[in-house]
């Protein structure tokens, strides 16, 4: 499968995305097509990282954009940017799928590390991580391991608080407080400013 060119981190134009969502609410297929083209790689890659299965990720990506088409009115700018909404929607649908009986029975296709490794070599094209990706990975490295672990398990493994507590052998309350503190520290390192 073709990879995006190196250093092509996903960038967003929140105002333009919001305008596309406004047109999608008016049943404008052209707007949906443009919205899809802008974010399909991002959505598919995110679903793939959670599900570790190309076919499942494809289904989730289709479902995400169909939900955008059907429920564009659910986007609330007070709660975040269109891309943030899309991210939450994608993760939610992908994680829900990992919890389905059939998915559990089948198991994940490939370990996450193998996917990351294959991304650099698949298709004969050498692909480096985008500048944004490197910045996030470097920020994660700066976190103390106790915070990095809960963020990794929660975000990249999609585990619930109780599953993380069980996996780390840590009390549930500690997991919650570490996750909150880890997120706060990570935001500070990345200097995320919300307008």
């Amino acid at each position: 499968m073709a990879k995006t060119p190196a250093n092509s981190g996903h960038s967003a134009d929140p105002a333009h995305d919001a305008e596309l969502l406004r047109r999608i609410r008016g049943r404008d297929e052209g707007a949906l097509s443009e919205f899809y083209d802008r974010h399909a790689t991002f959505v598919f890659s995110l679903a793939r990282s959670v599900l570790r299965d190309e076919g499942e990720a494809e289904d989730v990506a289709q479902e995400v954009f169909f939900r955008v088409w059907e429920r564009a009115d659910a986007f609330d700018p007070v709660r975040g940017s269109p891309l943030a909404w899309l991210t939450t929607l994608t993760r939610r649908l992908a994680i829900d799928r990992t919890r389905s009986r059939s998915f559990k029975a089948r198991g994940r296709e490939t370990p996450i590390d193998a996917i990351a490794a294959s991304a650099s070599h698949e298709g004969g094209a050498s692909v480096t991580m985008s500048a944004e990706a490197n910045e996030v990975l470097a920020a994660l490295e700066q976190l103390e391991p106790v915070y990095r672990d809960v963020i990794r398990l929660s975000y990249y493994e999609g585990l619930s608080h109780s599953n993380i507590a069980s996996k780390l052998g840590t009390p549930l309350g500690t997991v919650k407080s570490r996750l909150r503190e880890g997120v706060t520290q990570l935001r500070r390192i990345l200097a995320i400013k919300v307008e």
């Binding site: 990720a57 943030a84 991210t87 975000y155 990570l186």
Partner: peptide, 17 residues
């Protein structure tokens, strides 16, 4: 949510079929 976007950008980007 904005942090979630940044974390999502760190996964290898692969074009959807």
């Amino acid at each position: 949510s904005e942090l979630s976007v940044r974390l999502a950008q760190a996964v290898p980007q692969v074009e959807a079929p």
